[in-house]
């Protein structure tokens, strides 16, 4: 009985704060993307000719988890299969945040663009029957136009 009550409370907290956090995070990401839009991201290796000498590796990473309520819902969806939009959102959030952080690092060293960008995923803190967080890492080479 106590267990159910605790689970119920956690679900309610998850619903309220989880979706609020998510919305705010998306707002923050959009704002940051706007701010950093002068640093272009490419995932090609071919460089233009007008580059200054040298380059630097820049990275950005983030570990993100979904809230308790969404894990609960996901448990149901897994019975029948289908689209798990909660996890789609989580991955989108993490990927965009990682890119933004990479751009921020590039801006700090005064770069104009990032080439050969790669995005990598790894699962973090997973226990066998519980879905943990996801780490998204974005990295690339920051260069300066001459």
């Amino acid at each position: 009985m106590g267990g159910i009550l605790v689970a119920g409370i956690l679900l309610v907290i998850g619903i309220i704060f989880g979706s609020r956090n998510e919305r705010r995070h998306f707002d923050r990401i959009e704002q940051a993307e706007e701010e950093l839009s002068d640093i272009k991201i490419f995932n090609i290796k071919t460089l233009p000719d007008n580059l200054e000498k040298g380059g630097a590796l820049v990275t950005g990473n983030v570990v993100i988890a979904v809230d308790y309520f969404k894990v609960f819902i996901a448990g149901f969806i897994m019975l029948f299969g289908g689209r798990m939009s909660a996890y789609e959102k989580m991955m989108e959030r993490a990927r965009r945040e990682a890119l933004v952080r990479m751009q921020r690092e590039a801006k700090k060293i005064g770069a104009d663009a990032i080439y050969n960008t790669r995005i990598e995923f790894s699962a973090v803190g997973q226990r066998p029957n519980k879905i943990g967080g996801a780490e998204l890492l974005a990295y690339g080479t920051a260069v300066r136009f001459s």
Binding site: G14, F17, N21, D67, Y68, V71, G125, G132, G133, E135
Partner: peptide, 10 residues
């Protein structure tokens, strides 16, 4: 993990 979002420590 209850509220979701970034796990800053990790």
């Amino acid at each position: 993990n209850i509220v979701g979002g970034e796990l800053r420590g990790y």
